[in-house]
């Protein structure tokens, strides 16, 4: 188990390192920063001054090492556009996106879990087909269309929910529904297949043979085992939600990291873009690591050295 743990941690670190390299290269790809910073038509002396000021005259490797060293201590540079430290700008916007992500994944799980269990219990019947159709539609639904459909329905027709902004919980209902619809299909599928595997297993047959009530068998014996893969997939989906909330945040005018990054891209504010890529990727790596560790903790085969 220790060997697996070490290997898993090393690979997470290596992945993070590569991502940092990629996000550093993003900034370099954008061309000569000094010229871009100085603006069009500025004189050569000023460009040179900026180049020295930002350390852009030094070798790439040195620049990368400096940038990485600073990033590790929480200093992600200054935004070209706002002139403020990038870390402060992100710290102000991360909570909204996290709230949105947590709310969406909670909505997605509360919808997907009963649907998946029900489908597994009624395998290959009409209700199962209907649930699969729901999953299929969720997968095919472009987030921007579902967002507008929700706006048209709940904000314009019924006048129940506010159209945009992020002041209260009511503001986050529609965006998180739209995102949840996207995360749901994977969760439904994993619940259904986990449940149908568990229901066909020996321990469930034993439990049934002992004469336990069907309800007890489903909840206590089958569901607990079906939940393990669900947690892993939910962690992955949560990571994807953080990066994928750009569209939803743009439509609902939520000033989270997605919307902020999208703005930064149109303003060529590359320290911000760089930091966004790094932050979201780190979240994803940490989430998948946590999911793996959880799996390890729950599944005794890991401690016995039977699993990979």
């Amino acid at each position: 188990m220790t060997a697996y743990l070490t290997r898993r941690l090393c690979s997470a670190l290596a992945v993070l390192f590569s991502i940092s390299l990629i996000s550093f290269m993003l900034l370099k790809l954008s061309g000569d920063l000094a010229t871009a910073l100085a603006g069009e038509g500025s004189n050569a002396a000023y460009v040179d001054f900026l180049r020295k000021e930002y350390g852009l005259d030094r070798p790439l490797l040195v620049q990368y090492a400096t940038w990485l060293g600073r990033a590790l201590t929480g200093d992600l540079g200054r935004s070209f556009y706002f002139g403020e430290p990038v870390s402060t700008l992100f710290a102000a916007r991360l909570p909204v996106t996290l709230q949105l992500g947590v709310l969406s994944i909670v909505v997605a799980i509360t919808l997907a879990l009963p649907l998946g269990i029900y489908a597994a219990l009624k395998e290959d019947s009409l209700p199962d087909r209907v649930v699969q159709l729901v999953a299929l539609s969720g997968q095919a639904m472009p987030v921007f269309w579902s967002s507008y459909l929700l706006i048209l329905l709940f904000a314009l027709n019924f006048k129940l929910l506010p159209i945009s902004g992020a002041g209260s919980l009511a503001h986050l209902i529609m965006p998180s529904l739209a995102l949840a619809l996207n995360a749901m299909p994977a969760l439904i599928r994993i619940t259904r297949s986990g449940m149908s595997d568990a229901l066909a297993s020996d321990y469930v047959r034993t439990a049934r043979a002992k004469g336990l009530r069907s309800h007890t068998v489903v909840v206590k014996h089958a569901l607990r085992n079906a939940l393990v893969p669900l947690v892993a997939i939910a962690a992955v989906q949560f990571g994807l939600l953080l990066g994928g909330s750009v569209v939803v945040e743009t439509i609902f005018a939520i000033d989270g990291i997605g919307y902020f990054t999208w703005q930064a891209i149109s303003q060529n504010d590359y320290p911000v873009v760089q930091a966004a890529v790094l932050i979201v990727a780190s979240f994803y790596v940490l989430l998948t690591l946590a999911a793996d560790l959880l799996n390890m903790w729950v599944d005794p085969r890991f401690t016995l050295g039977l699993a990979p």
Binding site: G244, V246, Y270, A276, V277, V280, Y284
Partner: peptide, 11 residues
């Protein structure tokens, strides 16, 4: 898998 597709693609 760890790269945020949407953000990197946009940039």
């Amino acid at each position: 898998l760890s790269m945020p597709i949407m953000l990197i693609m946009l940039s």
